[in-house]
């Protein structure tokens, strides 16, 4: 599974409150989440997310179990997220809602094209390719199905 997008650099320990604030959780309207994603981190970020691959620091998605966090990123057009490691509930949630992610410590160059292969395990930022642990077959299975809902919908 290969993804390509424009590099967007963010820092470490970005928690789920910063991805989507608690005050926007009382709805099922996904457009609301996409509109307010990262609002408390940087209100100018949301419009820049379409087609982006976010390269971020350690522990991305720490905090609450709110699935609205990966959903908001996906709805805003984020292609994938790359971090040295993720908070574990966010990791599961992202796979479950079909948002690709990969654990990799790689350099981040704003605006440069990024390609990552989740099954082969590598990330290319501009001219630099960095190896990464590939996603497990289990995760890839869910992700390629389009998320856990699709995965279960097609199971007997």
């Amino acid at each position: 599974m290969r993804i390509t997008g424009k590099c967007l650099c963010l820092g470490a320990d970005i928690d789920t409150d910063q991805i989507i604030a608690g005050r926007y959780l009382r709805t099922k309207d996904r457009a609301v989440w996409a509109e307010h994603v990262f609002e408390d981190l940087d209100p100018l970020l949301a419009p820049r997310l379409k087609g982006a691959i976010i390269i971020t620091g350690n522990n991305f998605g720490c905090g609450s179990s709110r699935e609205q966090a990966p959903l908001a990123l996906r709805e805003a057009g984020v292609v994938g997220v790359i971090a040295p490691f993720f908070a574990r509930i966010f990791f599961r949630n992202a796979i479950n809602v079909g948002l690709p992610l990969l654990e990799c410590t790689c350099r981040c160059e704003e605006g440069v094209m990024v390609t990552a292969d989740l099954a082969e395990g590598w990330v290319q930022v501009g001219g630099t390719c960095t190896p990464a642990p590939p996603l497990s077959p289990r995760m890839l299975g869910i992700l390629t199905a389009g998320g856990l809902v699709e995965y279960w919908r097609h199971r007997p």
């Binding site: 179990s65 709110r66 699935e67 509930i89 599961r92 949630n93 479950n96 998320g147």
Partner: peptide
């Protein structure tokens, strides 16, 4: 803890 879809 897990997310909503895992619990579904």
């Amino acid at each position: 803890g897990m997310g909503a879809t895992d619990v579904a």
